[in-house]
Design a protein around this nucleic acid. Structure first.
Lengths: 182, 182
DNA sequence: CACATTATATAATGAACGTTCTAAAATGAA
DNA sequence: TTCATTTTAGAACGTTCATTATATAATGTG
């Protein structure tokens, strides 16, 4: 009945997600997005109302395809504290030394002075609930892990020595296991 | 010999610091800075080469006037773990619910994809060295506190429930004191 | 093959940006 | 008071931006 889309919607979302994660929302221009996704602005605006709408879609995609996926890969239900340790350690082996950081963390900071998008609070909730569950419902400790997780991502993005972070994580989880009786 | 400056240099630096802290470097326009500092761009460009140069000066000012000042106020040398607890708790009582966050944390994220300005690494070092000293030179724990500190600032900026953060900090420091034998 | 419909490419638009330029104003020295 | 010097105010410049408008291309259907 009409001309079909000539691009893969998920591929565009993934490309936009990477660009936004690396450079932030405001610093990523529509031309950057065209180049990253291999699609011209005409097509982007045909699928999304504006840059913000594409950003929000890419961010939801991030929460599922990257964040929840990472949890599933390293700290699935039942994996306990050991799963959480692996989850934290996995952050140290990201491409480019992890300089892209996390889209949730980065957006929390970028939008902190205005209105925080829902996907940020959602990302925090997913992490905290995962931590609490794997710890056997220790809420205060889960919030501590949430803060530690965000902080590690800030430090990694800023190029903080990965070796020091690894030692820190190792020590932290040794203590955590002792305190949670093993 | 010539016309004197008609504005207070520290006041301009402080105003710029607040603007950059709230909105970030890129999102703060020179016109924003004019309004915040009560000085026109002509004067700003007469004193600073460009926006970035003013930003770097304002950031150095932040490290001394805000960060080191906060340490001195809450966790001076000799104050031990109790000082650190007060330092962390003080973050929960910032104006506007702390939505401005920390200029070091915010800049670590904003510039994470390019070159990190020196004041960011300096800020990290000051914090980590302070933590290590007050803990009696426990480096791994100091790095954990550095990450926790950055994470708390991210969460506060994103409007995370201050009540939960307070409980978390309280629990964290109870554990810390036990582990450091008291 | 037309036709309706939707996608695509790119030009055009208007606003905002950082920076530079220009002229006036303010000072101390001569 | 005249001069050299520096600061100040704000207009002007060129660029980049997100978005809209426009024209063309591709499809299934009749």
């Amino acid at each position: 009945m009409a001309r079909p889309r000539s691009f893969n919607q998920t591929a565009v979302l993934t490309a936009a997600m990477h660009a936004f994660r690396r450079q932030g929302f405001a610093a990523t221009s529509v031309r950057d997005l065209e180049a990253a996704a291999g699609v011209t602005s005409g097509s982007l605006y045909n699928s999304y109302r504006n840059k913000r709408s594409l950003f929000l879609a890419a961010s939801e995609h991030y929460n599922h395809a990257v964040l929840e996926r990472r949890i599933q890969d390293h700290a699935p239900k039942g994996s306990g504290i050991e799963g959480l340790r692996q989850l934290f350690l996995s952050l140290l082996h990201e491409p480019d030394g992890g300089s892209a950081g996390c889209l949730v963390t980065n957006s929390a900071v970028e939008f902190g002075d205005t209105e925080i998008p829902n996907f940020v609070s959602d990302g925090f909730d997913v992490l905290r609930d995962t931590f609490a569950d794997r710890l056997g419902d220790d809420r205060a400790e889960a919030v501590a892990l949430l803060a530690l997780y965000q902080g590690v991502l800030v430090l990694i993005r800023a190029g903080y020595a990965a070796h020091d972070l690894k030692k820190m994580i190792t020590h932290y989880f040794e203590n955590l296991e002792e305190r949670h009786g093993r």
